[in-house]
């Protein structure tokens, strides 16, 4: 769980950096983004990493289902009066729910962009690269689609807020000083990823 989670965190950074190119001025962004997408789909190293990514998503999901089932079985009968919530953050208890939202979002995300780019027929730009840029921009003209993204990214943000430091604990980081640092980095990382990924749909919706 921790290892796949940390790999997915690493992927989030790279994915965000690449997609921030969408915020460039329109003409520049279109050609550059399409060229970037073409480069990614042709590179053998990226291909290997992408298979690791698919495997990580699947393993992370399977492990989550296993742990939730085990927890449900272990919990036994419920308390009539239950005030245990005072001892922990809501998002640390709702990782499965947040993860399910993110997973559902991923299905939509893959269907709308990954599948058409890989297997569909989309138009090309003047350089002859597949015009993924226009596909993205057109999608984000719909308000409901932008809201869907916002909900999913907020869920991801809270998922990271707990998941990042939790992953380090699971691999065994126990030093009091460094665990504090990792917790702070985790908060920064979650905030940065949330805002970074939120800017893109809102910027395109409002400006383009």
């Amino acid at each position: 769980m921790a290892l796949t989670g940390l790999f997915l965190c690493f992927f989030l950074i790279i994915h965000l950096l690449g997609n921030l190119q969408l915020l460039l001025p329109k003409e520049e962004a279109q050609l550059q983004y399409n060229l970037y997408s073409h480069f990614l789909s042709g590179n053998i190293l990226i291909k290997i990493v992408s298979y690791v990514l698919y495997a990580s998503i699947l393993l992370h999901t399977i492990d989550a289902i296993y742990l939730s089932t085990k927890a449900k079985k272990a919990s036994g009968e419920t308390y009539v009066k239950d005030k245990r919530n005072r001892a922990s953050k809501w998002y640390s208890r709702q990782m499965m729910l947040l993860g399910t939202i993110v997973f559902a979002f991923l299905v939509i995300h893959f269907k709308d962009f990954w599948y058409p780019y890989k297997f569909g027929s989309i138009e090309t730009d003047i350089n002859g690269n597949k015009d993924l840029y226009s596909l993205v921009v057109v999608s984000f003209q719909e308000l409901w689609y932008v809201i869907l993204y916002a909900v999913a990214i907020l869920a991801l943000g809270f998922h990271l807020l707990h998941g990042f430091f939790s992953a380090f604990r699971s691999v065994g980081l126990y030093h009091p000083y460094y665990t504090k640092i990792v917790k702070t980095i985790g908060i920064g990382f979650a905030v940065l990823m949330t805002f970074g990924y939120l800017i893109i749909p809102f910027y395109i919706f409002l400006k383009l």
Partner: peptide
């Protein structure tokens, strides 16, 4: 029949002896 730790840290908060959750991280290590 115990479940798996997901680091919610609730255990330390309600522990009468305030046993640190970092023990769990050390165990994992």
């Amino acid at each position: 029949d115990f479940g798996h730790c997901t680091n919610t840290e609730a255990c330390q908060i309600e522990c009468p002896q305030d046993i640190s959750v970092l023990n769990i991280a050390k165990m994992n290590f």
